[in-house]
């Protein structure tokens, strides 16, 4: 943090030149591990380049994510680690009893979510997967979507994929969900009559009042938001966006938000998973 005083002095100069609040050239390295936060978009992408939300944050916020101790999201991942080993439900089993070491069994899962679940014959988010396993294997009550336990577990399981490239499948049975998500992304809703694309495709990098618009990439969820002073799910963030454009939000875990999640994940294929990340 000693850098901050030096930064403060430098920022006075930077401000005189322009509204340089975000450091878009910085590279994310966490404890020596490099992350892909920027890459060329494939030809069929609607975006010219793919940028993680981390790139849109200012230096102080960016820095908090480069150190696992300073990143308060890690408290949740640690709580998730405890829950992983805690016996639950009628069967008295813990996650670890069946899945063993999460760093092996859960590695890559977050990077591939949401994905098709054969047994349930539907598209599963990570939250769906966790609750299905609780009911099926532990005979335990499902967790509420935004509960501290669910956020801790999604943070912990997500952490096992940290640094891996987002790689979701959008073909086969997932294809209609992908199409539905895409349709939602471009559909105007609410009193402000806006679609996701208006802010996050046409205007990312610009300021909307005091907010620096990102591409709305989802590779860091669940995230610790400074604004929330706590952890929140992706679907909470969706709800926030819809509230802002004066639309009636879909429910967390709804088919609409799940379809949107798949479509958004596909727009960020190749970005490193940053879960659990930190945003403003």
């Amino acid at each position: 943090m000693n850098k901050m005083i030096a930064f403060g002095a430098a920022a006075v100069v930077a401000l005189a030149i322009g509204q340089a609040t975000a450091d878009e050239e910085a590279e994310l390295v966490i404890d020596g591990q490099a992350f892909v936060t920027k890459l060329d978009a494939p030809d069929d992408s609607p975006l010219p380049e793919i940028l993680s939300g981390w790139r849109f944050r200012n230096s102080e916020t960016q820095e908090l994510q480069t150190d696992d101790f300073e990143n308060p999201a890690m408290i949740f991942a640690e709580y998730g680690e405890e829950l992983w080993a805690t016996a639950e439900g009628e069967t008295g089993k813990s996650c670890a009893d069946c899945h063993g070491d999460a760093s092996e069994s859960m590695r890559g899962l977050r990077a591939s979510m949401p994905r098709w679940h054969e047994g349930k014959d539907t598209l599963f988010t990570l939250e769906d997967h966790i609750n299905w396993s609780r009911e099926e294997h532990q005979k335990a009550k499902p967790w509420k979507w935004e509960s501290q336990e669910m956020l801790a577990m999604t943070a912990y399981i997500g952490l096992q994929s940290r640094g891996m490239p987002v790689a979701v499948k959008t073909d086969g049975k997932a294809a209609p969900w992908f199409e539905k998500g895409k349709e939602l992304y471009y559909t105007r809703v609410g009193q402000l009559d806006m679609a996701c694309a208006h802010c996050h495709e046409n205007n990312y990098g610009n300021m909307i009042r005091a907010d620096h618009l990102s591409q709305g990439q989802i590779n860091g969820f669940p995230v610790y938001r400074l604004k929330w002073q706590g952890m929140g799910s992706l679907h909470r963030r969706f709800k926030g966006c819809m509230d802002n454009i004066r639309a009636t939000p879909y429910k967390r875990g709804s088919d609409e938000f799940t379809a949107l999640e798949l479509y958004l994940a596909s727009r960020g294929q190749g970005l490193s998973v940053e879960t659990p990340s930190l945003r403003n």
């Binding site: 943090m1 005083i5 401000l15 200012n58 230096s59 102080e60 908090l64 938001r225 400074l226 002073q229």
Partner: peptide, 20 residues
């Protein structure tokens, strides 16, 4: 007294600050 803080805080709920 050194007072280190962001010129512009992205969110007022959590502003990193350093003094020396």
């Amino acid at each position: 007294v050194e007072l280190g803080a962001p010129e512009i805080a992205e969110n007022g709920n959590t502003v990193p600050i350093e003094v020396a």
